[in-house]
């Protein structure tokens, strides 16, 4: 049962249905915004920048009407990575020691780096899960397709890639459910997925993985058949039922993003003696 809860906890790629300005924004704005945000937080040299980034994110989350606990769910997945990063930087950064524990030293520099790393990772995950929480997978790939259309000049099959991505995203919940079902069916036949050493456990996965692959292939071929039955033949000459169009709010969002980027990078690189990392 623990495993089932774990499968359910993966929020990355899960849409939260509600009415909000952020949900209504053009997916291209949200994609570009996430990219800008992620890049921006790597420029900071003091904690003022991070404070601004947190404030900005809090503001957007507030606008999105998505309950905060959904963001935290995404954090659970990277908790281990986060801890390793923090501990590694905390104890292994050379510099002026402030606290000594046997052979381990916590340095002033290490504390700063550890905290800023933790902030960066958390903001990264929360920021990008905000994108998927407020944008349906379909919208997301639509945005990608249109936003990256210029790559066609270099013969990149943008439409095909976008279609593959939207199908892949669409299949995640289906395959998760399937995994859960097959796992239960094999457990009912006495399969044990939880005990034994690594090799035993890897072997125990065979009765799960083989049926899962078989079913994935079956679903894929069914889908291909259904698409062909509806005359799908790639992106050439294909029109959209709901073409993406920028509205006033989208331009405003771009403006805000630009302002945030410039202002927070400027503030984040000021030489502040107390707040420098």
């Amino acid at each position: 049962m623990g495993r089932r809860d774990m499968l359910r906890d993966i929020t990355l790629g899960q849409y939260y249905q509600t009415e909000s300005v952020i949900h209504k924004l053009d997916p291209r704005v949200k994609l570009a915004g996430t990219l800008i945000y992620v890049i921006t937080i790597f420029f900071y040299k003091n904690f003022l920048g991070y404070a601004l980034a947190i404030l900005f994110l809090a503001f957007v989350i507030r606008l999105s009407h998505v309950p905060f606990r959904f963001m935290v769910k995404g954090m659970k997945a990277i908790l281990f990575l986060l801890m390793v990063t923090v501990l590694y930087n905390l104890f292994l950064t050379p510099g002026t020691p402030v606290f000594t524990l046997g052979k381990l030293h916590i340095t002033k520099e290490g504390t700063g780096i550890a905290v800023s790393m933790a902030l960066r990772l958390s903001l990264l995950v929360i920021g990008s899960s905000l994108l998927t929480l407020t944008t349906t997978p379909n919208n997301l790939t639509d945005g990608m397709e249109k936003g990256l259309r210029f790559l066609k000049i270099f013969k990149v099959p943008v439409h095909e890639i976008a279609m593959m991505m939207s199908i892949a995203l669409r299949f995640i919940p289906i395959l998760l459910e399937e995994t859960d079902k097959i796992m239960k069916a094999q457990m009912a036949r006495g399969a044990d997925f939880e005990s034994g050493n690594l090799i035993v456990r890897a072997k125990a996965m065979v009765p799960l993985l083989v049926p899962l692959f078989v079913s994935a292939f079956r679903r894929a071929s069914d889908l291909a058949m259904a698409m062909e039955a509806r005359c799908y033949r790639g992106g050439e000459g294909r029109t959209k039922m709901k073409p993406l169009k920028y509205h006033g709010r989208d331009y405003l969002a771009y403006l805000l993003l630009l302002f945030f980027m410039v202002f927070s990078i400027w503030a984040g690189r000021l030489k502040l003696p107390m707040l420098t990392i």
Binding site: K184, A185, A188, R189, G190, P207, P211, V214
Partner: peptide, 20 residues
Amino acid sequence: LKELRSRVGLVFQYPEHQLF
């Protein structure tokens, strides 16, 4: 629980999907 599962057999919907 293993003993229980040997006494209570459960056949899921579309059980052929569990063959491997």
